[in-house]
Simulated assay, not measured.
Amino acid sequence: MATGSALTLRHLSPRPPVSMSPSPSPSFSSSLHPLPKRRPRSSLAASNPRFPMPPIDFNDPFVSGLNAADSFDFWPKLRKGPDFLPSLDVVASSSFAPSRPRESLEVKTPPAQIDETRLLTEPPPDLESKLLYARIVYLCLPLVPVVSELIIAELLYLQGMNPHEPIYLYINSTGTAGDNGEPVALETEGFAVYDTMMCLKNEVHTVLVGTAAGHASLLLAAGTKGKRYMFPRARALIQQPRMPSYGEMSTSDLVIRTREALIQRNKFAELIGEHTGNSFEKVEKLMRGPFYMDFNEAKEFGLVDKMPTRKDKLMADVPSLDEWDIRAGITRTRED
């Protein structure tokens, strides 16, 4: 019991105080290391070269000049102590009250300036929009839903801008099929663009660059008569549509899909014959296998009218750079 009570009193008794004097007692010098002295905050900030804090003299002519030139009173004019930071006064204030009347704050912005030397090195922004200024619609991808939606939107946009000027449709597309001939979209995507062209008030001048296969050749033939162009090394192709692979299906579903494919093929052949001046039987016979055409064959078939020359107008007149800058209020600067 005596031992237990002695242990209890030993744990409950407070520890002896440690002396913080410069010369510790010999009993603690061997077991404890002396603690370093804490330097004042001012001496620590002054000795740290990474965070210099020079004093601010508000009577300095440069500081007073900034305060006079600025429209907002960011710098307190000795109404605080010398250790007061002027940025705290701005944060603490509820609003930025201008020191001068509001009329003096109104500044007339000069016209924007651009450097002509940068125009030759920087790419033009949004090239598709630049083409729309020349009333050019460029079909350069298969007629998947996203592409057909964009082409239709551009055609309607150009009609809304001016329903009297022609629209120039450049074609380099494989239609509703891919490069390997496999279908990538429904045939109705091509018919959607075709029906939109037929409803426009504008003339549509078609220009074939590259290739036009399937429904792309239909769009080429649907242009305004006499304004259907084809470059010398371009190729046109008409063929009957293919059915996509749907896997296993019932016989009734197979019959329905086959009937729908035949309907789409007959519509395509009728429209091609209507715009080229050929009979349905002739077009249907040529479509049984891929029928490729160069310029002479396409012209004989009635798909195109002529080959473009330098005198042919294949884009609308667009304002010059100086005219665009005058409209936008931009002045040019040239470095000689």
Results as ranks from 00 to 15, higher is better:
Thr176Val: 15
Ile171Phe: 06
Glu270Pro: 01
Ala236Arg: 08
Val255Pro: 00
Ala192His: 08
Asp179Met: 10
Ile167Cys: 14
Tyr246Gly: 00
Met249Gly: 03
Pro244Met: 03
Glu187Gln: 03
Glu260Ile: 06
Glu165Ala: 13
Arg228His: 12
Gly226Val: 10
Leu218Arg: 03
Pro166Cys: 12
Ala222Val: 05
Lys227Gln: 14
Thr196Gly: 07
Leu200Glu: 10
Met197Asn: 09
His164Met: 12
His205Arg: 09
Gln240Leu: 11
Tyr168His: 11
Ala269Val: 09
Ala177Asn: 11
Gly178Ala: 10
Tyr170Cys: 04
Phe191Gly: 02
Val207His: 05
His205Thr: 07
Leu218Thr: 02
Glu260Leu: 13
Ser245His: 11
Asp253Arg: 15
Pro244Asp: 00
Tyr246Asn: 01
Thr188Ser: 12
His164Val: 12
Asp253Ala: 13
Thr206Ser: 09
Arg233Trp: 06
Ile238Glu: 05
Leu262Pro: 02
Arg257Glu: 14
Gln240Ile: 04
Glu270Lys: 11
Glu182Thr: 10
Ala221Lys: 06
Arg235Leu: 13
Ala213Arg: 10
Val184Ser: 03
Met243Leu: 13
Leu169Ser: 02
Lys225Asn: 11
Val184Cys: 10
Tyr168Glu: 02
Glu182Met: 13
His205Val: 09
Lys267Cys: 14
Arg257Asp: 02
Pro232Thr: 14
Leu218Gln: 03
Ala185Ile: 01
Arg235Thr: 10
Glu248Phe: 10
Leu208Met: 04
Ala221Ile: 07
Ala236Ile: 04
Ser173His: 04
Thr188Ile: 01
Gly181Val: 04
His164Gln: 12
Lys201Asn: 14
Ser217Glu: 09
Glu248Pro: 04
Ala261Glu: 07
Gly214Cys: 06
Leu218Glu: 10
Val209Asn: 01
Val255Arg: 15
Phe191His: 02
Tyr170Trp: 10
Lys225Ala: 11
Val193Arg: 05
Arg242Ser: 09
Leu219His: 08
Ala185Asp: 05
Tyr246Asp: 00
Pro183Ser: 00
Leu254Arg: 14
Gly226Lys: 03
Thr176Tyr: 10
Tyr229Cys: 02
Val207Ile: 14
Tyr246Glu: 04
Gly210Glu: 03
Thr174Val: 07
Pro244Gln: 01
Tyr170Gly: 03
Ile171Met: 05
Phe231Cys: 10
Ala213His: 07
Ala221Phe: 11
